[in-house]
Design a protein around this nucleic acid. Structure first.
Lengths: 232, 232
DNA sequence: TCAATGCTTCGGCGGCTGCCGAAATGTCAT
DNA sequence: ATGACATTTCGGCAGCCGCCGAAGCATTGA
């Protein structure tokens, strides 16, 4: 009963031209502002706002406020999967989505990538899980963490620039960021960025040219084991 | 423009509780009558009829008239794929669909099975392709074939009961039947049934108990090569 | 502090669509 | 032929939903 309704409600949400246009734009995997989506859908900002909040409510989209903008992105790969199968059925061969499909399935990208300026993918999750499981991070509020005393010590010994991270007053320090491929939060904010910097500076990871993909070096793999007690 | 609309129209069709209930029932891969679907959806026959014709129009369903009943089934595996991805997104773990998904992926079933009383799957397609490529079958109308003179000779040498097949006046003789897994037509009708009988009588194939799956025997594999020039 | 910008909420209008009753069509059984 | 059954078509009603204008918050920058 309820399951059937859940399915039809989701399909009904997708089954509106304005919302479909928004979802198609979001199939590029990036986050877009509400105005951007409204313009794409060809509706006014009010109408778009209603559409967007309904899709967030139904867990089709995830929203993130930044300044006076609000960024929306697809909530999970499952949503993209639904859109892709619908596009197949609708007889759409190529399009912006094919690019999306390619990078969504890219195993390297799922393994390790940058999310803005911090680490994401399996490696990002491994680091985050290690920190929480060792008591270095503790939940604070719905979307933040606190760096515990042991966490500070751990970061200092790792060579993370904690002072620099704490100075960035204008942004969150230890923020939870929902991982696109792993569907669990990884560490972001200025601390997440500082940790990622450490990985790059110590040669544990390398950015790939013109891509968000990050390659974990051999020493990086060893470091994950020795410092974080994690294996990926 | 038109592509976006096609997508949203399909999603809108799925996005109705009554239609969703029907589609869920049809996820078992079989054909169901209009009344059956109406009852499942909890609507009257008139309402169901409207829903069904709209879904046929949109190529979500295929309809087949038989006596005073009308059987509807999913038009293609792509439709099932959409439903599956939606079910995943809606958070349905088990259910009638999981059975469906399982048998749709069953390699043995995709390889060879009965479709009512004739052969389907890769073997059914191989037989059909062999007949058409050797000029034994020629297209007649949109959904039928004609058995050519060479085809009659071929069937007689194979031991197919052509006389019996021709006597069944009330049904099509050499009908095209869209293969669920191969997405191309295979031979059905009374000729298709007679060919399948030959396979069973000569020990080329065996029905598996309580299943539509058919096992191709070793001699059947050899026969496919020697008589049909096909390898599967 | 004030104006500009981005986004959301509220209220009301218009159209679309799902629903059923009634009736028509087509098929089977006697 | 006649009645029973399955399905479809027609017509009209009711409710939902997308749309926009107007107004209200929040953030940014001068």
């Amino acid at each position: 009963m309820t399951t059937v309704n859940a399915l039809s409600e989701i399909a009904a949400l997708i089954g509106d031209p304005a919302r479909t246009a928004m979802l198609q734009l979001l199939m590029d995997g990036r986050a877009h502002t509400a105005s951007d989506l409204a313009h794409t859908a060809g509706v006014t900002a009010q109408t778009a706002s209603g559409h967007l909040s309904r899709m967030v409510e139904a867990n089709l989209l995830a929203a993130r406020a930044e300044g006076r903008n609000r960024f929306y992105r697809l909530a999970s790969p499952d949503v993209a999967q639904v859109m892709e199968s619908l596009m197949t059925l609708a007889g759409m061969r190529a399009g912006p989505a094919s690019r999306t499909a390619a990078w969504r399935r890219d195993p390297d990208l799922r393994f390790c990538r940058t999310c803005y300026d911090h680490l994401a993918g399996q490696v990002g999750i491994a680091v985050t899980d290690s920190l929480t499981q060792h008591g270095h991070l503790e939940p604070k509020g719905p979307r933040d963490w606190t760096l515990t005393n042991s966490g500070e010590l751990f970061c200092e010994r790792l060579g993370v620039d904690l002072d620099g991270a704490k100075k960035a007053e204008s942004r969150h320090f230890a923020r939870q960021c929902l991982d696109w491929s792993e569907r669990r939060p990884h560490i972001s904010g200025s601390l997440g960025a500082a940790i990622a910097d450490t990985f790059f500076k110590r040669g544990w990871a390398e950015r790939l040219r013109r891509s968000r993909t990050v390659r974990l070096t051999d020493s990086g793999r060893r470091a994950l084991g020795s410092h974080f007690g994690a294996s990926v």
